[in-house]
Computed example of a mutant assay.
Amino acid sequence: MSIPFFDLHVHSEPDTYSRRYSPLSLGQEMKAAGAGAVLKSHLTATTSVARMAREQGYPIYGSITLNQYAGGVSTQAVQAALAANGQDAPMVIWFPTLTGHGAKPRLSQPKCHPVLDTYPVKLERVSEEGRLRPDTIDVIQLAVDFGIPMATGHSSKEEVYMLVEEVDKRGGRIMLTHPCHSCTGFTTSEVAELLQSSHVWAEVAILMTKLGYESPDDVLDLLQAIDPGRVCVSTDFGQLKNETVTEGYAWFIEQVRTSAASRGLEIPDSLVEQICRTNPMKFLGV
C-alpha cells in the first residue's frame, strides 16, 4: 500500500557516517513517491545541496544541526545556512546531536572518513550550569525572527524543558526529536504534557521502532493520549543497513495497524495522512 508522507528527518551524504543516499538519489525517490524530505547531517549544513536539488526539480529541503563540525550553537552558523538556503524555501534548525547524552548507539555504522576517528569532535550542548547558554537563546530568537522551525536534537531531558520554555516565551515552534530515545527517555504522559503548548510538536521516528526504543503499542498510546495534530512521523533513515524511506513508511504503518487491530482499534487512512504528511508539511511551512 502506498503511504502519503513528507519526511522531516533523512540522512544523506555528506554525513558523519556513510549513507545510502545522495541528495539527488533521495530526491529521485521522493519525486517518484509524490513525497518530500528534509536532509539532515550531523556534519554540515545541508541547505546548499538541498537548494541545488530543488533547482533540478526535486522536493528536497535543507537544515543545519548545530554540532561543532557545523560551527556549534552559533547565530553565524545559522545565518550562513539560511543564506545558502535561498529566500523562498523553509529549513530546519536542529540543536546539537553530538552531545554525549544517552546510552551507546544500538546501530553500528562506518564513519565517512578516517579524520573523524583521528580527531574526535568536541561535544556541544545547549546549556551550561543548569541554564541555557546565551548563544542558544540567540539562536532561538533568530529562528523566531525568520520563521525557522527548530528541533531539540540530542539534548537532555532537562535541556528539552528549558528549550521548550524559551520557545514558548518567544513564540517559535520546536519539535521533540525522537523523545523516546535514551538521551531524554520521555514517557508518553510527559510528551502529552509538553504538547499542551501550541509551540511544541512531537516526532515519531520510525528508526526508534526499528531499534527497539519504542514499540507500535507505544505509538498507539501516544496517539490516544494527545491530539495528533502536532505529531509527525519521520524515518530518521539513510543508514546503509536500513531499507528505503518509502519502504520504511509502509513497514511502520503496517506494524502500527497490526498492533491497533490486536486492541480492536482501527487506524484510518485520514490519520495516516495527517501524521505522515499533513502535519510534517505544516511544521516545516510548505
Rank of each mutant, 00 (worst) to 15 (best):
K282V: 06
I226W: 03
A32P: 01
L194T: 09
L26N: 03
V144I: 11
V126M: 12
T184W: 00
S197F: 13
G238P: 10
L98R: 05
C112W: 03
V200F: 12
Q68C: 08
Y119I: 13
V144S: 05
L223E: 10
G248N: 11
K104R: 13
G130W: 14
L195T: 11
H154C: 04
E214L: 13
I3G: 07
Q79R: 15
P4D: 11
R106Y: 11
Q274F: 02
L107T: 06
R51I: 00
P216L: 03
E203Y: 08
M162E: 14
S48K: 00
A151W: 02
P228I: 06
N67L: 05
G264S: 12
L176E: 04
V73T: 12
D88W: 02
V78G: 11
L66S: 12
S270V: 08
Q255S: 12
Y61R: 01
L98T: 04
S108F: 11
Y21S: 11
S155L: 06
F5N: 03
G102Q: 01
T152R: 09
V160D: 13
Q28V: 09
G100Y: 04
I137A: 15
G130K: 14
G172F: 07
V219T: 09
Y58M: 05
V92R: 08
V126T: 15
P280S: 08
G285W: 05
L26F: 04
I275T: 02
V139F: 08
Q87S: 15
G34I: 09
S270H: 07
V73C: 14
T65R: 01
V231R: 06
E165P: 00
G147T: 03
C180N: 01
G34R: 12
V167Q: 07
E203N: 10
S74P: 14
I93Q: 12
Q28Y: 06
C232K: 03
G285Y: 08
Q141G: 06
V144W: 06
F186L: 13
E266Y: 09
H113C: 13
M208K: 02
P90S: 10
V144G: 09
K169M: 03
P105I: 02
F283W: 06
T258Q: 15
Y119F: 15
A143R: 05
V233Q: 08
A205Y: 03
I267T: 10
G229A: 14
D221Y: 00
V144E: 04
M1C: 13
H178Y: 04
A260V: 04
A80T: 12
E266C: 12
G34S: 13
T187P: 05
S108H: 13
S12V: 10
L43I: 00
E214V: 07
G36N: 01
D7W: 03
L220I: 15
A77N: 11
K122L: 14
L123A: 09
N67V: 02
M52K: 00
D138H: 11
E129L: 14
T46Y: 00
S108E: 15
P134N: 13
P149T: 04
V10F: 02
Q76K: 14
Q76D: 14
I137V: 15
V204E: 04
A37Y: 03
Q239W: 06
C180I: 00
L271E: 10
V191D: 01
D15T: 02
Y58F: 14
R277N: 02
S74G: 14
H154W: 01
V256E: 04
P114L: 12
D168E: 15
A260P: 04
K111R: 13
F5V: 05
S182I: 00
